[in-house]
Write a protein that binds this DNA or RNA. Sequence first.
DNA 1: CGCTCACAACTGGTTTGACCAGTATAACAC
DNA 2: GTGTTATACTGGTCAAACCAGTTGTGAGCG
Lengths: 250, 250
Amino acid sequence: MTSKDTLTAGEERIFRPVETKRASEAIFEQIRDLIAKGGLKPGDRLPSERNMIEMFQRSRPTIREALRMLERAGYIRTVPGSNGAIVLPPNDKNLENSLADALSIGHISLDQLAEYRTASETVTAGWAALRRSEEDLRAMEQLLERMGRHLDDYEQYVDMDPDFHGLIARAAKNTVSVIFNRTFSKLNRDYMTSRMAEMDGERQRAMTRRVHQMHETIFTAIKAGDAEGASAAMRIHLTAFRDDLSQTGR
Amino acid sequence: MTSKDTLTAGEERIFRPVETKRASEAIFEQIRDLIAKGGLKPGDRLPSERNMIEMFQRSRPTIREALRMLERAGYIRTVPGSNGAIVLPPNDKNLENSLADALSIGHISLDQLAEYRTASETVTAGWAALRRSEEDLRAMEQLLERMGRHLDDYEQYVDMDPDFHGLIARAAKNTVSVIFNRTFSKLNRDYMTSRMAEMDGERQRAMTRRVHQMHETIFTAIKAGDAEGASAAMRIHLTAFRDDLSQTGR
DNA sequence: CGCTCACAACTGGTTTGACCAGTATAACAC
DNA sequence: GTGTTATACTGGTCAAACCAGTTGTGAGCG
């Protein structure tokens, strides 16, 4: 307050942080956006570094910094000698990895993850009931039938579980659901199998059957176009499943 | 099959891919591991680039490539002039960036994103109503009051909107919600402002007021511990908001 | 003595030009 | 045809330099 007319620190929220672009950052964004918008499809090649020098009017180290960023973000892969970096297919590995990182660092607890997953897939199941195509239904029915043949082999069954949930996400016609679903599935899977391995055979079989029945219920609701029912069934399924697992002790 | 004793292409999964390390990659891993293992804590500074030249016995461009990767991965932040890159606290931008990247690379339409966001924040609002602390309520109330003073300046208002939703996510006590919320806000923001900029002043003000009223409603429900009400209000808010924006034409 | 201010010694951002070890391709010999 | 070999690329790396900005320091002022 005693300062003349200079702004002091600790100011109100009048200013937004100014983003001073690094050249490499700008190049990164340009290429990233082009890929995201489909201007560059998976398998396509970027120009060679020396060609990009002319295109971006920037030096090679600068361009290389941008390439390293793109690489880290999972957009491209560069191999020496081979002409130009290759655009990678959309891949959730990065997402899954960073989520896994956050998990291991301990910022996200398994409980919170499970809770969010339950909510997410509950909604997704509802959408699936409204939007599933005949093709979706066929795929689910087929998978369910296959899963039904493995009721006594929980490992096999658990292996296929993510696929079933994945089909639902696909049927929901929302890409965000699909991506998150895959991430959740992957993160939960190890946990799931290890917990089930602790059970005795009797319990494993009982649980597998319970799970399968819920899957059938969910499928029936989705087939009937019953969004409410599908959501409810999914919520019960995931909640019950969580309880089942946590009962195993610890 | 007819080849003598040489291995043909398309071989089985006998070999693991050999990883020929780039120098910058090796440096990246060294620093990343040091940070992950706690050898470098958030707030610490890396040595200056020129110092690292001697430590790693590598040239500056090489070291800079490693720094760009670390930056992209969310481990550090570099500011010009300031001595040495700063180690960031885990989880912060890291996850959001890879989430945003993964979302944008997956060719996700804004519609789908908005739909999922609506569902996600609806659930989150419900949790917030059940779990908000006094501190959470105070923060929301304060922010709402400040926002109420900018009803005629939609730019300012829109700027604070993500903060409000962020507070709700925080109150929901689910880290996944917080992270996703931030990601959604980030992705929606540019879109939002550009759409509102197309409106005439009258409409902007009317809309800002409508939005503010919904914010108040949501807050009231959360304060009252009314999960159903909070969820419902949030759903209405986001849905109405989407409709408002899409009316703008195109 | 304490404060201010200018200057030097940094910092990160960028460029240039060069070299190396590989790869792809096309011309060549067979 | 097939096999070989140049050659002209590619990415990976280095060195030295410049700029614009920050930080730290110390001289000089009050």
